[in-house]
Simulated scan of single mutants.
Amino acid sequence: MSRLELRHVRKAFGGLDVLADISLSVGAGEFVSILGPSGAGKSTLFQLLTGAEHGEGEMLFDGARLDDHGRHFAFMPQRDALMPWRRILDNTTLGLEVQGMRRQAARACVAPLFAEFGLAGFERHFPAQLSGGMRQRAALLRTVVQQRDMLLLDEPFGALDALTRTAMQRWLEQMWRHHRWTALLITHDVREAVFLSDRIYVLSARPASIVREIKVPFSRPRCLGGEHARQASALEAEILDIILNPQSIQRTRP
Rank of each mutant, 00 (worst) to 15 (best):
A237E: 06
A232M: 06
I249N: 09
L196Q: 05
G95P: 08
R10C: 12
L152W: 00
G133C: 09
I210K: 13
A81D: 03
E53V: 13
G63K: 06
M150K: 11
S131Q: 09
E227N: 14
G225M: 15
L240V: 13
H8F: 10
S204D: 06
D241I: 03
R165S: 05
L49S: 09
A234F: 06
L153F: 02
A115I: 01
A74V: 02
T50S: 01
E173H: 13
R148L: 12
V144N: 03
R65P: 05
S248W: 06
G133N: 08
E97M: 01
D154R: 12
Q250A: 15
P37F: 04
G95W: 09
A128S: 14
I249T: 15
G121V: 08
V18W: 03
A64N: 13
A229K: 07
E173D: 13
A205D: 07
I34T: 00
A183Y: 04
M168C: 02
L35F: 00
L6Y: 07
L240D: 04
C109W: 08
G118L: 10
R142N: 02
L4R: 14
G226Q: 11
R230G: 09
F31K: 03
I214P: 04
L235P: 05
L235A: 05
L153I: 00
Q231K: 11
D80H: 03
G121W: 01
R199D: 00
R206H: 01
S2T: 06
S2D: 06
E213V: 00
R3I: 15
A167C: 10
L24E: 03
S33N: 02
G57E: 02
E238C: 11
T166Y: 07
G41T: 01
A74N: 07
R7H: 11
L203K: 06
E155F: 00
L151Q: 11
W176F: 08
L113P: 00
I239P: 07
L94F: 07
G27Q: 08
G70C: 09
R65V: 14
D198I: 11
M1Y: 14
P156M: 01
A81N: 11
D189W: 10
S131R: 10
R251I: 05
L196F: 12
R7F: 07
L113T: 00
A183N: 13
H54G: 01
W176C: 12
R230L: 10
R86P: 05
H69E: 01
A28H: 13
A128H: 15
W171I: 02
E53N: 05
S38N: 11
R135K: 15
D149R: 11
G57S: 14
V110T: 10
E5M: 12
G36I: 02
V9C: 11
F157G: 02
A40E: 10
H188S: 14
G15H: 15
I200A: 03
V26Y: 07
L224G: 04
F122V: 06
S209M: 04
T93Y: 05
E30G: 05
A120H: 06
I242Y: 09
L96S: 00
D241W: 02
G225A: 15
T182K: 04
Q147T: 08
R124Q: 14
L6S: 11
S23M: 05
R87S: 15
E227D: 13
C109T: 09
L19F: 03
G41R: 12
E53A: 15
V145L: 11
H228R: 12
L16H: 14
L89M: 12
A120W: 08
G14D: 03
L184H: 08
A64Q: 15
L163S: 12
A105K: 13
